[in-house]
């Protein structure tokens, strides 16, 4: 990766003195990713600086080993920081935080007021929301996987992913591959995609959340016409767009998501379907499908083969249209003013 960037920069410096370079090509892949990542980190730093004088909040922790009160920093400390006060096990297994018994909160999202805190892992008695967050994260990571998996000659434009539907059997990301006409991946290519996914997972990156204004979001996704179309409708309600970052990949999602990528255990990218028949608006739209289980879930290989076989069928969750994107039911879950 570093070599690639170096190559790009040397090319640019060389060509700038001789003749103009078609920069659009570069903005569509690596440079666009770097630029978005840079803007994300800058905005995050700005928001952290805006906190100003540190105020303290009291967080009532409930759960193992015992209930206790933690004094944390307002607008800076996250549930993950609370878990760091408890034990390594809490840090590794907690996927989602539950504030005041009602609000599901990302592990890496700063706390804003006094609250009670419960940490939720994948084995809690009622794991529906944790499962949804897991499935959403898997979709998100599939987008990151698709952007890194192809060669530089194949431009990849992420379109969107629908809300998590676990009973459909597979998580989805819709990707536009403008240069590939009726591509059907071979078994080897699917295995390679899966391997890229596992590589991303093993980097053990936290999933960071950031709410940005509509203008900044448009600026970040300037090279992606699908995202720029979707952003105004997403920002209509609050004027804010929720972004998530893992590694260098930044994408739009309403969240919440799990804590780190390492919590994704066994994973397989099982099929890529061409959606051109059903969705005529976007040319060369491909639906990437996969199936995954959390770390620590041990399942028989035969049972897993049943899941992968089912996930191979085209998942007919409605094709994402900007209006009916994921943020539709966002108010009920993670929006706390």
């Amino acid at each position: 990766m570093r070599r690639q960037i170096l190559c790009l920069s040397t090319k640019i410096t060389h060509n700038s003195c001789t003749k103009a370079l078609p920069l659009t090509r570069f903005l569509s892949t690596q440079e666009a990713i770097d630029r978005r990542y840079h803007l994300f980190t800058l905005e995050k730093k700005r928001q952290l600086d805006k906190v100003g004088r540190v105020e303290k909040i009291e967080v009532q922790y409930k759960g193992v080993p015992n209930d206790c009160t933690l004094v944390m920093n307002k607008g800076i400390s996250t549930p993950y920081d609370c878990a760091r006060h408890l034990s390594e096990w809490h840090m590794d297994t907690s996927a989602l935080a539950l504030l005041d018994g009602t609000v599901y909160w990302d592990m890496h999202r700063p706390l804003t007021e006094n609250c009670t805190l419960e940490l939720q892992n994948f084995r809690v008695p009622e794991p529906q929301q944790v499962n949804r967050a897991f499935w959403r994260t898997c979709s998100f990571m599939l987008g990151a996987c698709a952007t890194v998996a192809f060669k530089d000659t194949v431009p990849v434009k992420l379109h969107s992913f629908p809300g998590p539907d676990i009973r459909s059997g597979s998580f989805i990301y819709d990707v536009q591959l403008p240069t590939l006409d009726d591509w059907k991946p071979s078994q080897q290519e699917l295995i390679t995609l899966g391997a890229e996914y596992v590589k991303l997972v093993r980097q053990n990156e936290p999933l960071e959340r950031l709410e940005v204004s509509e203008e900044l979001a448009l600026e970040m996704f300037v090279e992606n016409e699908h995202k720029t179309k979707q952003i105004p409708s997403i920002a209509r309600n609050h004027g804010k767009v929720t972004l998530y970052k893992v590694g260098k990949h930044v994408d739009i999602s309403k969240g919440p998501m799990i804590s780190t990528t390492k919590q994704i255990g066994r994973v397989a990218v099982v099929s890529v379907h061409n959606l051109n028949g059903s969705n005529s608006e976007v040319e060369h739209l491909y639906r990437f499908q996969g199936v995954a289980l959390p770390t620590g879930v041990i399942i028989n290989h035969f049972a897993f083969s049943i899941l992968t076989d089912r996930a191979k069928k085209l998942n007919t969750v409605r094709s994402p249209v900007p209006k009916t994107l994921e943020h539709e039911d966002s108010e009920s879950i993670a929006m706390k003013a």
Binding site: V64, P65, S87, W89, T93, F122, R123, P125, E126, P127, Q128, N131, F134, W135, I166, R167, S168, G169, V291, L293, P294, V297, I299, A303, I306, L307, R310
Partner: peptide
Amino acid sequence: NPFPDLMNYKTNNKLLIQNVLLDAA
């Protein structure tokens, strides 16, 4: 002790993600 339980037999919860997936299949 304060550590999590070593014996975890609680895999029959219908709502666990693997059980949801298998049930749907």
